[in-house]
Design a protein around this nucleic acid. Structure first.
Lengths: 356, 356
DNA sequence: CAGGGTATTGGCAACGTTTCCAGTAACACA
DNA sequence: TGTGTTACTGGAAACGTTGCCAATACCCTG
């Protein structure tokens, strides 16, 4: 590499298309004013004369100037950007939350960069770190693992405000969050099933470490307890929110000695697996077995029979998350918490237990 | 940044705490070496001694240093970031494309910032401009309007490589793109319906300005022409890809004097509307009316009867888009084009025409 | 020991902004 | 005429990096 001949060649090859950027300097030169005046015009400071403003503005589109937000952010110490780390962007629920958040943030002049952890705690950490290095002004996320030390550590290093979506991190000092009321939603759903005469009610959901799962289990138990009934412990299946787990768990449940007469699927991906399994096993939803799902998606409405769901307003969740973050960004004291209600939408998939 | 709306907010937010950053300077001081040596270690240049490397690395986590990617990008002239502008992130199809692209880009060391135009050409333009000002290294997008002058202008100002997803911009100098083969897919689907005896086949799709719509119409016409049949011009409905339009168009079609015996929905949102309308009208999919949709989503598989679709691999589309962009980023000469095949998945929603 | 590498390091000027601090001109007032 | 005030403008120092260039120390050869 130190060969002088090579160096020469490299130098020649380095002679890339310069692609010289048009900077404020050019604008200033063209307008015959100082750099600082151009800056003042661009940031509409109070102390600029009309003639100066016109002069600079003309020069700007004469030379085709475009601001460099990197330089601006570096100098200013703020990027006007917030990060959003989604667990799974292909899940319409998260997509809608992200959309709600982005709308609200854009209104306030912030822009949002959306990234996808694909449910991996490692990627979670990597994304937090990357966004931190990018100097985002705030972060909205739904961590993949609430207990993970690495994630906690990465978040702790972030001095900017953070809002969790449907997560609580008990290992950390209290952090702002928007939380949906899974417990009450689930309690209502289970109560509905019990009312219909079901006793063998199964719950299929993700890892019990996650808040939505925890809360739903609370609601589940509360409903049984309220009626003085014993909990069907053997019908609780926790592993992941994926369709494949939904399918596998359903098969296991159906094959048991005392199979359930009703199933609750803890998410729209799980539901897909459950439906596949029921179809394979030749069971008819509604008449053979009752079914409840979480989160209203087109499939639940259009399935025949239509599927009873515990619903919540995903858009609203996103907006609420953005709202909290904006409050914090404006200097508000944290932690702030917003509760999003859930509601039970009864449809044809839940029918009275034939022997109930 | 010149947006006057932002001024007030920024001013309010400026009253931040100082929060002095830990920079390379601190690291250098702590290690007793020069700033440039720290930089060399961080970018692992060849000419650093082992002792220096250790010394600096130790100092780095002694002082808790975190790189500032803004400064780095500014200096280096490259952000290692590519933008992705999606039409509608809550559409699982786009979400999957984005996911495919992000995976491939991450592998190559790039990170992706995902934004959402919500199908609005104005937002399209605004997003292109913003990303340009952020100095992204490349852009993947699916413009909302292929003809719009403003969008063309914004793209023209971008000197970095661009890859379109399922779009062609005829007003611009040729631009790279990943295109799916809608024409053949549609032709196969229509041929399937014609084979089943259907003649009154309706097509509901988005605005005809968009490539997927254009191509599908080609395929549609080709299938009729190939059999020497006359085109049912009155059954072609173009307006938007939304569920509401799907519903409205279906109602119109059903109310016509010569209603269709088969409907093709040009997207998964349209399908939702079509299904709603059919349900309202009391028509049974399959026996009363045949149905084909575009893009395989859980709903099509799990609906009863299951719905015949023209499928394509969305993940692959995203990966292909990233692949093309990476080639261009590596200095490859454009424009590059990748074709993604479509395939017809026959299911129970397409049945022989009773009178066929 | 001179001479010429080689390997490593330090210093310094950028990158494109913003912002503080002076400086200037114009004007009013006494 | 001098003084103070107002309204603007220019200059220059940051922000945190990177990369070129020169400097140093060391080693090897003759």
């Amino acid at each position: 590499m130190a060969n002088p001949d090579e160096a020469g060649i490299r130098e020649a090859a380095t002679k890339q298309a310069p692609a010289k950027e048009v900077t404020m300097k050019e604008v200033a030169a063209h307008a015959g004013v100082a750099l600082s005046s151009v800056s003042r015009v661009l940031n509409d400071h109070s102390d600029v004369s009309e003639s100066m403003r016109k002069q600079v503005l003309d020069a700007i589109d004469a030379v085709g100037y475009e601001p460099n937000l990197l330089a601006s952010s570096l100098r200013r110490g703020s990027t006007m950007t917030v990060g959003f780390i989604a667990n799974d962007i292909s899940n319409p629920l998260f997509a809608e939350i992200a959309m709600g958040a982005e709308r609200r943030l854009n209104e306030a002049g912030y822009s949002m960069v959306l990234t996808n952890s694909e449910g991996s705690p490692e990627r979670d950490e990597a994304m937090i770190r990357l966004l931190r290095w990018r100097r985002i002004d705030g972060l909205i996320l739904s961590v993949a693992d609430e207990e993970r030390a690495g994630t906690l550590a990465e978040l702790a290093k972030l001095s900017e405000p953070v809002v969790l979506v449907d997560r609580e991190m008990r290992g950390a000092t209290a952090v702002s969050a928007v939380l949906s009321d899974h417990a009450n939603g689930m309690q209502a759903a289970i109560d509905h099933l019990l009312e219909l005469g079901h006793r063998r009610v199964a719950l299929i959901s993700g890892r019990p470490g996650l808040r939505p799962v925890r809360e739903r289990v609370h609601g589940f138990k509360a409903a049984f307890r309220a009626r003085g009934l014993e909990l069907p412990e053997d019908l609780l299946k926790f592993d992941s929110f994926s369709a494949t787990f939904g399918e596998q768990a359903t098969h296991e449940l159906l094959a048991a000695d005392y199979p359930p007469t009703a199933i609750v699927a803890g998410g729209n991906l799980l539901l897909i697996g459950v439906l596949r399994a029921l179809q394979t096993a030749g069971r008819t939803v509604g008449s053979d077995i009752s079914l409840v799902s979480c989160d209203d998606v087109p499939l639940t409405e259009l399935h025949s029979p239509a599927i009873t769901v515990i619903d919540r307003d995903a858009l609203q969740m996103g907006e609420a998350a953005a709202e909290l973050l904006l409050k914090l960004l404006a200097g508000g004291e944290g932690p702030l918490v917003a509760e999003i209600p859930t509601s039970l939408i009864r449809r044809a998939s839940t029918q009275p237990h034939p022997m109930g």
